[in-house]
């Protein structure tokens, strides 16, 4: 097996970072493919249980971005 790659769950706000991710895609920008994006309606939707649930399911890190 090649080098270990972390799995990162990214909770992105629909109006901010999700838009930025979209723009990054449109702009054909390159970024690490370790993140698994979950779109949330607003960062206010974030809950400590999402973080714990992500770790339970085997994520190595969680990134919340508004």
């Amino acid at each position: 097996m090649s080098e270990w790659e972390p799995k990162i769950v990214a909770f992105l706000c629909n109006w901010c970072s999700y838009g930025a991710a979209d723009l990054a895609g449109v702009g054909r920008m390159e970024y690490p493919s370790n993140i698994r994006v979950i779109r949330i309606p607003c960062t206010g939707r974030m809950d400590p249980k999402f973080f714990l649930a992500a770790l339970r399911e085997g994520a190595d890190g969680v990134w919340v971005s508004g």
Partner: peptide, 23 residues
């Protein structure tokens, strides 16, 4: 392991930068 950040929807460059840092 838990990171927070704030990226506006116009900041694709910042998004890429933050993803790289977090990873």
């Amino acid at each position: 392991r838990l990171q927070f950040s704030w990226v506006s929807s116009a900041e694709a460059t910042k998004f890429v930068q933050v993803v790289t840092e977090v990873t």
